[in-house]
């Protein structure tokens, strides 16, 4: 399919928790093509590289694309300062998303700012979807209401116990897996969490797809910058987040995180 680059109008750019923003763009052709797990590559003012942000939602009726991001540095700070009406230069949808074929029950696990692509994926999942999200603390919780409104059973953990389960998201995730009916685990979050979830999925003999991050150049697959190490029989090879991912099927690719 063709890639699309366009100046897309900002409809809304709202802080939803301290330092976290929800951005809605008017982008009918991108929304129509977007699949869960894909991302948008965004030009941020005079920064010399675009910023990759996962697609959190696509409303084909209104022609809108939703991205949720956290301020991490200069690019995302610039993004947070843009008001509705501004035309944002976006290339999307990019990358390869989740593969739900043959699955009837799935668990979507997100860590902090890894949660937005999980909302998009859980809502699009054709069978029974469950979610488990982990956050630093109560104030950093995002998208809880969105998951609830979509009728997706949700467990929340916080690192400091200020809300929900106190501890790692792998705990409620393991409870879900124990109760059965889940053939696929999808996850996006910090590296230690990814490793924990991959280990868990292996123990429960469950398929597992992870969404990975890496510093990126072109975003379209041409420059081979965003490398991910994958163990392939004897040797290690490098695949690429924007070309082969961001979603990698752990059962096909032994990614080294």
């Amino acid at each position: 399919m063709a890639f699309i680059q366009k100046n897309t109008e900002i409809i809304e750019n709202k802080e939803i928790a301290k330092g976290f923003f929800s951005l809605w763009l008017n982008a009918p052709d991108m929304a129509a093509q977007a699949a869960p797990g894909q991302f948008a590559h965004i030009r941020c003012g005079d920064k010399s590289l675009r910023r990759p942000i996962s697609i959190c939602g696509a409303d084909t009726e209104s022609g809108r694309l939703r991205l949720v991001y956290e301020i991490r540095g200069e690019g995302t700070k610039w993004l947070s300062e843009q008001a509705p009406g501004y035309n944002l230069d976006v290339i999307a949808p990019l990358g390869k998303g989740f593969d739900f074929r043959g699955q009837s029950g799935a668990l979507f696990i997100g860590g902090g700012i890894g949660s937005p692509p999980m909302l998009c994926a859980a809502k699009a999942f054709p069978g029974k979807a469950f979610a488990a999200l982990g956050f630093r603390n109560k104030d950093a919780i995002i998208l809880k209401q969105d998951f609830e409104e979509a009728g997706i059973p949700l467990d929340i953990t916080t690192d400091d116990g200020s809300y929900g389960y106190h501890g790692l998201v792998t705990h409620p995730a393991e409870e879900r897996l124990k109760s059965g009916g889940i053939g696929l685990v999808c996850v996006c979050g910090p590296a230690p969490m990814l490793r924990g979830v991959i280990e868990l999925a292996k123990r429960y003999n469950t398929a597992c797809q992870v969404s990975l991050e890496q510093r990126m150049g072109c975003g379209v697959g041409a420059c081979r910058v965003c490398a991910v190490k994958v163990r392939d029989k004897q040797k290690d090879i490098y695949m690429h987040v924007c070309l082969n991912g961001p979603v990698f099927d752990i059962n096909k690719f032994d990614v080294q995180i």
């Binding site: 920064k47 010399s48 590289l49 890496q214 510093r215 990126m216 150049g217 420059c223 081979r224 910058v225 965003c226 490398a227 991910v228 190490k229 290690d236 090879i237 490098y238």
Partner: peptide, 23 residues
């Protein structure tokens, strides 16, 4: 050739550094 381990890119003022390594 497999090239270099990541990160392979860094943003700089008005530019970038890369270290793809001929993958």
């Amino acid at each position: 050739r497999q090239g270099n381990p990541p990160p392979r890119i860094a943003e700089t003022p008005s530019g970038m550094l890369n270290s793809v390594g001929l993958q």
